[in-house]
Design a binder for these strands. Structure first.
Lengths: 146, 146
DNA sequence: AAATATTTTGCAAATAAGTTGCATTTGAAT
DNA sequence: ATTCAAATGCAACTTATTTGCAAAATATTT
């Protein structure tokens, strides 16, 4: 499906291809170690330093985005094609936001503040319908016991 | 001005007050070490672990927000009252966005995805008018030399 | 296809942000 | 003033990420 292009001037190694592959297969941006483990599962051994070095270069080339999620202290990496999303605080599920409301707002910002806008990131935290349901059920018993 | 309230059940120590004070005086969210140094400047010696412990507790109490900025690998901490902002990529200046466009959008998200929204963070990256001007001047000479 | 040049890799060691255990000090309650 | 829980500082620790370097892999040239 998606053409996973390795940027001009960089060699095509099996590690590099595998890393991009894993990133493409996951909706959720991953920790470096997640990638390491997913690859190991597949029987592909790639050292963590290689993973970090590749993510770094892919980020500089604009293919990968590095971000920290709320209440986490290690970076996550995802393909830059997958952008704004909702994060469920319970199950960490991610839902992509299709129509980013930001575009309209952008012009307003440029006008008011005179900034040239280079990019933005929006993260929204909440509870997904499934977890909401589950939480409801988990709490019922307690409420009943009086 | 701003009442810097130390949360119920926690003691009022000079370190705690000083940390909140520094946070209030700065528009830009700060690294733990920035706080440490600012305090030292003022002649107040507070150990880094105390700073981290306090920021942690203040965060849990909702007074402080912890966030990572684009291309940075250490956390920044700011009073939660100061929320969405524009960041200049050159000078790191921060401009607060007053009317967050997100509120309207929120309802749409709840409807479409069924998520309960707990919070959000918006960061916008760009170049502020001053830096834009400076960059323009720095580049002129080169363009002229043909 | 072999030879050469250049990247890339893995490993082990280094770095740096953030955390933790513990003895001591401090603020608050009596 | 006394007492007790909470807070502090220090040093040691943990953990994510980075780096130097020799060996291996890819691309290029012949």
């Amino acid at each position: 499906m998606g053409r996973l292009l390795i940027p001009q001037g960089y060699k095509t190694t099996k590690q590099r291809k595998a890393i991009l592959q894993v990133l493409e297969e996951n909706i959720t941006p991953m920790h470096a170690e997640d990638i390491y483990l997913k690859l190991k599962e597949k029987g592909i051994d790639v050292s963590l330093s290689t993973i970090y070095r590749n993510l770094d270069m892919l980020q500089k080339q604009g293919l990968v985005v590095k971000a920290y999620m709320l209440n986490e202290d290690k970076a996550r990496f995802g393909l830059s094609s997958k952008k704004n999303y909702l994060v469920c605080q319970e199950c960490k599920k991610i839902v992509i936001i299709d129509n980013c409301p930001f575009e309209k707002f952008k012009e307003e910002l440029i006008e008011v503040h005179g900034f040239d806008i280079l990019g933005h990131s929006i993260e929204v935290y909440g509870i997904c319908p499934e977890c909401k349901e589950k939480l409801r059920n988990d709490q019922k018993p307690l409420e009943d016991s009086r």
